[in-house]
Design a protein around this nucleic acid. Structure first.
Lengths: 181, 181
DNA sequence: CGAAGATATTTTCCTGGTAAAACACCTGTT
DNA sequence: AACAGGTGTTTTACCAGGAAAATATCTTCG
C-alpha cells in the first residue's frame, strides 16, 4: 500500500492541511483557500465543543444550559425567553425546553409580566447564581489551559482576526441583534 | 432606559466583544481571554454553517451529505463506512443514515467486500461524481465571497493561526486519525 | 474444531434542535 | 365595542446526531 496523505504524517500539520493536499491532487483547479479558513473554524469549533462539554458535565450542565445561565449572569437582570433566544442565538422552542429543565433543577425562576401576560421574566435563583459563579471560572480556566499551547502574541492575533471575520459575518449575513437596549 | 452594551453599538465590534464587556462589568475578576477565541470560533462556525447550508440546499444536499460526497471525491477511491466516519469526524450511525439517503438518491453505490463480509465499500456513482463536481466549485466560490471582506494578508494570517490552533487541539485532545495509510 | 475475543456495520433509543402551528394576549383602528 | 393585525411563548412534529446494544463476521488460541 503506497503511502498516502494522512493528517498524521510527520510534520504534515492539521487535518485540514491534509484535506487541502488531497484536493490539490484530485482537483487541482479548485480554489481551496476558503477551506483553509472555513474548514479549520468548523473543526476547531467541533473540538472545542467536545472539550467544553467535559467540565460542564461534572457540574451537571449541558453547554446549552450553561449558555442560558451565563446570559442571565452577565446581563445581571431578568430576561424574557425572547431575550434569551437572542442572546444565545437559538430558537424560542429551544429556550423553552432549556428553561423547563433549569426551572426543575431550581437554577432559574420565572414570573409572568404584570402588564403583558404573554411575557415571562426569567432570573437566576440564589442557587443558580452560586452554581454559575462556581462553574464559570473553572470552565474558563479549562479553556485557557486548552489554548495555552499558543504563543500569547499568536493568540492575540487570532482573536483579532477572528473578531474581524465575525464582524464581517454578522454584518453581511444579517447577524443577530440581541435586545440589549 | 439607560443605554447598555449591545453588539450593535456604533463601532462596538462583534457580539463577542460585547459579551466580554458585559463580563468585565459583572465579573471583573474573570479572565475573559478564552472567550475572545472560543466564543468567536463558535459564533463564526455557526454563521458559516448557516451560509454554507443555503447553496447546498439548492443542490438538494445537506452539509453532512456533502461532506460524505467530498470525502469520496477527494480520496478518489472506494471507502468503507468506517473510513467515512473517520474522514467526516462522525459516528458510524450517522454515516449509515447518510449513506442510506445518498444511496436512495443514486449518488453513491455500495458493495460487500469479497474477503470480509462485515465490510462494505462505498463509491460515487457517475451521477454522484458529476453532482459533487458541479456543487463543489459553487460552494467554494460562495465561501470565497463570504470571506472576501477580509484583507488577503489578514485571511492568510487567520488561516495560519487557525492551523496552529487546530494542530494543538488535535494533538492535545487525541485528535482524529483517519485511516489514510 | 470450538470458544473467546475482536471488529465492521447497523439498529435502537434517546436527546436536543428547528420550523411551523397553536394559543393567548396585546395594540390600533373604525 | 368589535375586529384585524401583530406579538410572545409554548406545543407539535420532525429530524439528525450520538451512545450503546445488537448482529454478523473474522481472527487467534488451545
Amino acid at each position: 500500500m503506497t503511502p498516502q496523505d494522512g493528517p498524521a504524517g510527520a510534520g504534515r500539520g492539521d487535518t485540514v492541511a491534509s484535506v487541502v493536499r488531497q484536493w490539490h491532487r484530485t482537483r487541482p483547479d479548485l480554489d481551496t483557500g476558503p477551506i483553509e479558513i472555513v474548514g479549520r473554524i468548523t473543526r476547531c469549533a467541533a473540538l472545542l465543543q467536545q472539550t467544553e462539554d467535559a467540565p460542564l458535565r461534572r457540574a451537571g450542565l449541558s453547554r446549552a444550559e450553561y449558555d442560558v445561565l451565563c446570559a442571565l449572569r452577565r446581563m445581571d437582570r431578568e430576561l424574557t425567553p425572547g431575550d434569551l433566544a437572542r442572546e444565545t442565538f437559538s430558537s424560542g422552542a429551544a429556550v423553552t425546553k432549556r428553561l423547563k429543565r433549569l426551572t426543575e433543577a431550581g437554577l432559574v425562576a420565572r414570573r409572568v409580566d404584570t402588564r403583558d401576560r404573554r411575557v415571562a421574566h426569567v432570573s437566576l435563583t440564589e442557587e443558580g447564581r452560586a452554581h454559575v459563579d462556581a462553574v464559570l471560572p473553572a470552565q474558563l480556566a479549562f479553556e485557557r489551559g486548552v489554548l495555552g499551547g499558543l504563543a500569547e502574541s499568536d493568540a492575540q492575533e487570532l482573536g483579532q482576526r477572528l473578531a474581524e471575520l465575525l464582524q464581517l459575518l454578522e454584518g453581511s449575513l444579517g447577524g443577530p441583534r440581541p435586545a440589549a437596549f
